[in-house]
């Protein structure tokens, strides 16, 4: 799961370099302090826009996931 996300991030970064401009893909995180949704773009500082807290949590993927019951 995290491996896929990392790969996706790299791809996005490469695409950004090629176009020599910021990629307009915003990812929503949850602030660890006040709990609001924070939308971050590629070159934004990792910081909550409401309270300035620097720890943000990734939201759970909203797609079905398959697991083996082992």
């Amino acid at each position: 799961m995290s491996g896929q996300d990392a790969a996706k991030g790299q791809e996005l970064a490469k695409a950004g370099d090629a176009a020599a401009g910021p990629v307009a893909v915003a990812v929503t995180y949850i602030c660890g302090n006040c709990g609001v949704d924070v939308e971050l773009k590629l070159k934004d500082a990792v910081r909550c826009k409401e309270c300035g807290y620097r720890i943000l949590f990734k939201k759970r993927a909203r797609k079905p996931m398959q697991y083996q019951a082992v």
Partner: peptide
């Protein structure tokens, strides 16, 4: 044997739940 999780807001991890 197989669990397809669509929504899991609980504190239990998906793997743990499966």
């Amino acid at each position: 044997d197989t669990v397809n999780i669509e929504d899991n807001d609980s504190v239990i991890f998906d793997e743990f739940l499966a």
